[in-house]
Amino acid sequence: MIGYAVLGGFVLDAIFGDPAWLPHPVVYMGKAISALEKGLRARLPKTPKGELWGGRILAFCLPVGTFALTSLVCTGAAALHPLLGLAVQMFWCGQALAAKGLVQESTNVYRELTKPDLPAARIAVSRIVGRDTQALTAEGVTKAAVETVAENASDGVIAPLLYMLLGGAPLALTYKAINTMDSMVGYKNERYLHFGRAAAKLDDIANYLPSRIAALLWVAAAALTGNDARNAWRIWRRDRRNHASPNSAQTESACAGALNVQLAGPAYYFGEYYPKPTIGDAVRPIEPEDIRRADRMMYAESLLALVLGLLIRGIL
């Protein structure tokens, strides 16, 4: 049943994406994280050790609770009727994937850049990146959008797809809980340096293999879409560690090589300057059309991952 749920979920995401009117599990995960953080901070000592323990409790409770609750719902639905169980799994698998949403948001950036309307493009890209966007040039906006497509191809598409192929919707949503937790508390600033450490480490572990598989699939996708697969492989091997996270530069480096552009580099976050290394070589200037090229490679590698996964599960 898992294979059919994954296939159905993939199709649902490709057609509908994440409609704004439809309640999304990640929203409730975010509310749970905020409530748990507030409760833990109120009850534990306001010391580095106390915050470390608070973060560890959060990093245990949210994924375990997510897996237990979603497994219970899926099992209960299947007990009522196998088709109902399949429908629930399929629906949640679709919500765990973010391919169409990623393309929609990056396309919004592309449209504003090609008008051209730089202020609107800055606003559009601010919806999908964490860096400060108010002073970005058109090149900076384009780079930010391409980097986001490349990075989220891993943690927004390939990683949840791999986890749902292994354990259906419950495991995919457990991964999303880990990822959401990292995006909310996994910062190295004063507030989360200790409290967010466990969440960040757990996210690194959960993404370690998926990010590398995603990078290899990106190289294959570059060949399928007419981009530079050989250079994608070369830059991935050279620059895949050019990031503070052990996983974030995996797909970014493959993307930079495939497009023959330079990504990453210094950026501002919450008004603070971060001197990050660059990824790739500036063989040519980056251009808005690179956003669409990155989207096509993201879709191509997603299809590759789906087909390979279903073949392994014996569905195809």
Rank of each mutant, 00 (worst) to 15 (best):
R212T: 03
Q104H: 09
D155E: 05
L304P: 05
G39H: 12
L40V: 02
H194G: 10
N260Q: 15
G130N: 07
K188R: 15
L86A: 00
L40M: 08
W21E: 07
N227T: 13
R240P: 05
Y269A: 08
T114S: 14
G156C: 03
P266E: 02
Y28N: 08
V125L: 09
T251I: 01
S154W: 00
A200D: 02
R284T: 03
I315S: 05
P275N: 12
S211H: 02
P82E: 04
A121N: 08
N179T: 00
G168Q: 13
G8Y: 09
K143S: 11
C93E: 09
L209T: 08
I158V: 14
K201L: 13
K276F: 02
A98V: 03
S248N: 08
W92G: 00
V26A: 14
E105Y: 01
V141H: 08
L12W: 01
L36G: 11
Q95A: 07
P288D: 05
N207F: 01
A144D: 07
V26I: 14
D295I: 11
R284L: 07
L84S: 06
Y192Q: 05
A177M: 14
R131N: 11
A258D: 08
E51F: 13
S211E: 03
K46W: 05
A32H: 08
A206I: 00
A267Q: 04
A153R: 00
A20C: 01
I158K: 02
V149K: 02
A267G: 02
G55W: 00
A77G: 03
G76P: 07
K100I: 10
P116D: 10
T75A: 12
Q262R: 15
P119S: 09
L72H: 06
T66F: 12
N179L: 01
I128M: 15
A220W: 06
G39P: 12
P82I: 12
R293S: 08
L86S: 00
A99D: 02
I128Y: 04
T133G: 14
E147D: 13
W53Y: 14
V307H: 11
W233P: 00
R191E: 06
L58D: 06
L306D: 03
K100Q: 13
V88D: 02
D155W: 04
K188H: 11
S211N: 05
R230Y: 00
C93M: 13
T278E: 10
A222P: 06
E37D: 11
N207W: 00
R292F: 03
R41G: 08
L202G: 07
P170N: 15
P45L: 15
I33E: 13
